[in-house]
């Protein structure tokens, strides 16, 4: 249970970052943190008490294993997140070139 609460706390940290930080880079990091929290949650859901890693090895009985599927999902989610974050980083740099600032509250040409 503690782990779930901590996961949720991490998620809130990310959300807090997005809501309060002005720096583009910090916002990007916050969104990354949110993603990690979700990924951890996903891995936690696949966890089974007293179980081993889900790999078949020579000379090892197929004992109780944790669920491997969430791990595969997390791997995919990480890749996606990587894509999003690199895109965000690229956009942040280009935004700086155009607006001469990293402050998101000053980047608001689109309004109304």
């Amino acid at each position: 249970m503690t782990l779930y609460v901590l996961c949720f706390a991490l998620f809130l940290v990310g959300l807090y970052g997005i809501l309060t930080k002005r720096d583009l880079v910090k916002i990007i990091l916050s969104s990354g943190i949110m993603g990690y929290a979700c990924n951890m949650m996903l891995v936690l859901f696949g966890y089974r008490r007293e179980a081993s890693y889900p790999i078949l090895e020579k000379g090892r009985e197929a004992a109780a294993m944790v669920d491997p599927l969430p791990q595969a999902m997390v791997l995919t989610a990480i890749v996606i997140e990587l894509g999003i974050i690199s895109l965000l980083a690229a956009l942040a740099v280009r935004l700086f070139q155009k607006y001469r600032t990293y402050d998101i509250t000053k980047i608001r040409r689109l309004s109304g």
């Binding site: 990587l82 690199s86 980083a89 690229a90 280009r94 070139q97």
Partner: peptide
Amino acid sequence: KVGLSLFLVVLALAEFDPSQGDDE
């Protein structure tokens, strides 16, 4: 695919020069 993509992403990001750029 992953190796090259990641490298190219980093390369592309390295190409940016924040001090350069056109104020609009």
